[in-house]
Amino acid sequence: MSTEKKPKNVFVQGPITPEKIATSIAHHQVKTNIGGHDIFLGQVRADEINGKTVKAIDYEAYEEMANKKFHEIREAAFEKFDLTCMHIYHSLGRVNAGEICLFVFTSSAHRRECMEATRFLVEEIKANAPIFGKEVFEDETHVWKENK
């Protein structure tokens, strides 16, 4: 039985810190039925667009719908893969280039389940979560990002 199924807020203000990720890993050391973890970290890239370099992304979301969608995606993943644990965090607000904006963390008894689940989750989030991102340049002008 998992205790991870109730709806929860996946959003954190600003970047996801390496400390948060480390703490999250440490919390799983008591769960000794886990044999493998898989982690995806989305990082803000300093893309060059029309001669200007992206210094940060400002994230916003339709939060009520996004949390509902994240809940559906989590339920689908628990249904599809034999997971022990699943954690998803996404940033809102400003995340500088080089910082982490998405943290997907899955755990299972054996490697294959968590590895496949992470890929599924990341693709679902990118395609279906109503999150919007403004790529901000060094002169504070911006363009809106679009997932490919």
Binding site: F132, G133, W144
Partner: peptide
């Protein structure tokens, strides 16, 4: 009702 531009999460 919400009008949503292309998604950019992740």
């Amino acid at each position: 009702i919400a009008i949503l531009p292309p998604f950019a999460g992740g």
